[in-house]
Computed example of a mutant assay.
Amino acid sequence: MIEFCYETDFKLANEEKTREWITDVVKRENRTVNELVYIFCDDNRLLELNQKYLNHNTLTDILTFPYSDSEALHADIFISIPRVKENSQKYGEVEEEEIRRVMVHGVLHLIGYQDDTDEAKQKMRAKEDEKLRLFHVER
């Protein structure tokens, strides 16, 4: 099950297409979805979570909290809409595409991809690009 919760005035344009896409991404990585909950929130909420659980006093666009290390993904994924919007402007990307990039980034972390070195960041970016192209394929 994939759920979307909104703590801001943001709302995904097409929840069902997004669910199908995330499910396809996970399936192509030989995993399944148990429960993924995306919580779209503001900077203050993510900063509070970052401070409380990770002892980081910085803004971020996403925090992923896994509840299982099995093949079936189970997690809460918090996304700061203001941070994503700012990043989309910074990188010259359409907001909706940047939101999808962040959404799939969280899933890729759950699957085991990392971004803690330059080489890992390149692999993560390539995998994000690959998975973003899947969103635009007619189903």
Rank of each mutant, 00 (worst) to 15 (best):
59 L>H: 12
60 T>G: 10
60 T>K: 14
61 D>F: 04
61 D>L: 12
62 I>A: 14
62 I>G: 02
63 L>V: 08
63 L>N: 13
64 T>D: 07
65 F>E: 15
66 P>Q: 07
66 P>C: 06
66 P>R: 13
67 Y>H: 15
67 Y>D: 14
67 Y>T: 14
67 Y>P: 07
68 S>D: 06
68 S>M: 00
69 D>Y: 15
70 S>T: 03
70 S>M: 00
70 S>E: 06
70 S>V: 01
70 S>I: 00
71 E>I: 12
71 E>W: 00
72 A>Q: 00
72 A>H: 05
73 L>W: 03
73 L>D: 03
73 L>F: 03
73 L>M: 03
74 H>R: 14
74 H>M: 12
74 H>Q: 06
75 A>P: 01
76 D>N: 11
76 D>L: 11
77 I>D: 05
77 I>R: 09
77 I>E: 05
78 F>H: 15
78 F>G: 09
78 F>A: 13
78 F>Q: 05
78 F>I: 04
79 I>V: 14
79 I>N: 07
80 S>N: 05
80 S>I: 09
80 S>F: 10
81 I>D: 11
81 I>R: 02
81 I>M: 10
81 I>T: 04
82 P>Y: 07
82 P>A: 07
82 P>N: 13
82 P>H: 11
82 P>D: 06
83 R>P: 01
83 R>I: 05
83 R>Y: 08
84 V>T: 01
85 K>V: 03
86 E>P: 00
87 N>W: 05
87 N>M: 08
87 N>L: 10
88 S>Y: 05
88 S>V: 08
89 Q>D: 13
91 Y>P: 00
92 G>D: 08
